[in-house]
């Protein structure tokens, strides 16, 4: 599904990822854990195609195609999705309108019939119930006046609606209380399937108690220094990152 090979990337002439490799197969849930400044954000931004990053070496391949030259929308239409660490507030942009436009862009790309207002409403209401969200959400502007938890729920709602094949969850647990965390984890777990893959990027092990990863990677100074099973996350929680540093 996602194959990253010896990736060297950075911003403003500063190399941040220094030879990172990662392979995620269909149906797998991977977690990348690391401290602030280890390169977690750069990794998610480079995969999703944010402008301002350079790649000096290596490749990012999605379904056997190199995507590093693709604009962000092309990656999204191909089935890539990122739940943002800091979802953007967009006053004046209505949630329903935004999500319906995004879904229809994807359906059009896939050669499916676009949904009309009634069809979309039916679909979105099911997803809202799944995430225990109020229907007043539909009238509000994207993330405008949302609490931290509401913003993260909105990201997961978008994921459930757009049905990506590879989802990157970037610090999705930050700003969530335990109840919200459980609801979001439930939503993600139900969404798991043998065709869908996940990359969870996180500082803490907290979220991984509820979303069990198949593989855990430790990112230090732009490189993966250790990979293992879910027990590695527990070990990190107990010992911190220090023991893995050279």
């Amino acid at each position: 599904m996602l194959d990253i090979q010896d990736l060297h990337a950075g911003v403003d002439n500063k190399e941040i990822l220094k030879g990172l490799s990662l392979n995620i197969k269909p149906g797998e849930m991977h977690a990348v854990m690391g401290r602030n400044g280890s390169g977690k954000s750069t990794l998610s931004n480079v995969i999703t195609g944010r402008e301002g990053y350079y790649i000096s070496k290596g490749d990012v391949r999605y379904k056997n195609e190199s995507i590093i030259e693709w604009p962000p929308e092309q990656r999204a239409l191909a089935g890539l999705f990122m739940s943002f660490q800091y979802p953007v507030v967009m006053p004046g942009v209505n949630n329903t309108y935004f999500l319906k436009s995004a879904l229809n862009a994807k359906r059009k790309h896939n050669g499916e019939k676009e949904l009309d207002a009634a069809g979309f409403l039916k679909l979105i209401k099911e997803k809202l119930t799944e995430l225990d969200m109020d229907t007043s959400y539909l009238q509000r502007a994207v993330n405008d006046g949302f609490s931290g938890g509401e913003k993260k729920r909105n990201e997961v709602l978008q994921m459930l609606t757009l049905e990506p094949e590879l989802s990157i969850l970037d610090e999705t647990d930050s700003g969530l209380d335990i109840d919200a965390l459980k609801i979001i984890a439930d939503g993600v777990n139900k969404y798991r399937s043998p065709e869908r893959s996940f990359l969870v990027i996180t500082h803490y092990q907290r979220l991984l108690k509820y979303i069990e990863p198949d593989v855990v990677h430790v990112l230090i100074d732009g490189k993966i220094v250790r990979s293992g099973g879910k027990e590695l996350a527990i070990e990190l929680e107990e010992k911190g990152y220090g023991w893995l540093e050279s």
């Binding site: 195609g49 944010r50 402008e51 929308e73 990656r75 999204a76 953007v88 995004a102 862009a105 757009l162």
Partner: peptide, 14 residues
Amino acid sequence: QDALFYIRSRGLDI
């Protein structure tokens, strides 16, 4: 620019 990227990351063109 952040908003433009956010929207594009959901599949809408520039």
